[in-house]
Design a protein around this nucleic acid. Sequence first.
DNA 1: GAGCACTGC
Length: 700
Amino acid sequence: MGILLPILQFEDKIIETIEQNSVVVVIGETGSGKSTQLSQILHRNGYTKHGIVAVTQPRRVAAVSVARRVAQELGVQLGEEVGYAIRFEDRTSERTRIKYLTDGVLLRESLSNPELDQYSVVILDEAHERSLNTDILLGLMKRLVKIRQTNLKVLITSATLDGGKVSRFFSDCPVLTVPGKLFPVEIFYSSERPTSYVESSLKTALDIHIREPEGDVLIFMTGQDDIEKMISKLEEKVQSLAEGSCMDVVILPLHGSLPPEMQVRVFQPPPPNCRRFIVATNIAETSLTVDGVVYVIDSGFVKQRQYNPATGMYSLDIVQISRVQADQRAGRAGRTCPGKCYRLYPSSIYREEFPEVTIPEIQRSSLAGSVLYLKSLDVPDIDILSFDFLDPPSRESLEDALRQLYLIDAIDGNGSITRVGRAMAELPLEPSLSRTLLEANENGCLSQALTVVAMLSAETSLLPSRSKGSEKKRKHGSLDLPDGSGWGDHIQMLQIYEMWDRAGYDRRWCTDHDLQVRGMMFTKDVRKQLCQIMQKTAKGSLDVRSNNGRKDTQQEYRNLRRSLCVGYAGQLAERMVRHNGYRTLGFKAQLAQVHPLSVLKIDEDGLLPNYVVYHELIATSRPFLRNVCVVEMSWVMPILKKLENLDINKLSGGTSIPEATVDGEVTDLSKEAAVAKAPDDHESRIQAARDRFLARKPKK
DNA sequence: GAGCACTGC
């Protein structure tokens, strides 16, 4: 098209820098063309002659769309010289020289090929998003550039990442900055904190509509509820505006639980003479780019999931965004022409209260899976507690991961990976689920376990979005869905899938039962993939159609529940004596209730089962156990025994501790003190933000 | 009446 992307002017400089350095950081703002051009620059300059250029993306859609674009620009067939690899879909061939892939796929690849020697260059794109997988790759790449025999070049590219920090991480590697092609965005601040950000957004939106020239408005909110509230109020207000005084409007919600066909509505061109209001979660911050946006309204809040390693509980908190995030939101107004961003908070808040950057995912997640992954790489110089992370997770979080892994036999008492742990790491699942599969294989119910595990992986895309009142029906069985026979949600999932199986995987069956076709198809894909991996370790043959000629389902359910109990040994809860609340075992005890959507039933005395294992403990309005399965006392005992004998010092120290030099000890101690302090600050920041937020919510 | 932001193998 002849539009010169800014990055192309720097081609010589980029190549020169890469020639002389093994690691280079490239900072390129939106519109710089880094994602599509960097790989082509390397290709033009001979870097694909002796290896492939890999470019990682945090998201599947990005990997596919950028690969498609590059193939087009080079005039080649997608899948030939330019290809991509995402889960379930490998569109590469022997001829592929430029390969786009998700960061998760590259991690999987380095499991079977730790040196990644088919690649001459690895580009970690969008590193500023700090996805868990990218963070682990950063650590692995740092190691790999030093030890790999054949030459490896690593490029870390990002929009707004603190280049100096990454550069220091990679022994002061050079940082190149490429300008972007964003239009200027004028920022407006509120003079004070809003009492209700829904009301403030509403008012601001109407002001824009009345006073400003045409252009779409993107409004950032925290969740589905607020979005729906906002939309109904906005519709009401717009209708009451005098006819003919303003343009017509289209109001669109945009959030993750919206079915895809509703999501893509924002990509359809609006009718002429019509202003669109897009009311969105932070999905519109990075994942989806809406064209035509000229005005952005930023509440300054985001709903964020975080993990507390002390209790094993996730929480969904509404927290203040970071300055980087605020700037990213503002930038959404300047993609096609100069824009305006209305921040519903004073500039002093932006400067003084907002953290500089968002806390990286690695410091907000359970690390059992990542730690198992690193252990399974089996490189002698990797000691988990001193693994070189760009931002190290707290020691507490790493110790929690080790405890979890020990409880499910993935590591032994000395912290070394076991045979079971190795088999688990092969599976693209969280450790509790991979352990369940291996145990089920021993208990003769692998097929059923595969089904449950696949259903859990697809869970969020199974039910249609609420507001249609469908869960109610699901729970009360008016849709003739099975009820788990009193054993809980996992068994129900098994029963649902088996019904679908008996119905010949009919799409119509899904819609009739108010299940999303897409979600069920995804379950089927995941199950198939897991089946293939398990084939190596499986006893006997694996029938996908598992329920033919069924004899004793109760016995089968029992075997499955026993397997789940082994896999979820770290996610165990005991009912309170006097009521139906539960407390968790194995952590600092946490009180929680079974989630209202669970199918778990009370007995004739009005009581829930004594012991359950749960898939997830999450605090939303209150702490809930989501997806529970009834287990027996006799299966619980060995776990309690194991907990008693657990020695965290052996678990974390068991791996090769290098001879402690005085220097080493000093730095270790200071590091420990630093990380011990971090969670408190973090916690209190979240708490403070939550308090402020709640204080502002209108009373009902 | 109580409900999960987003992403990925």
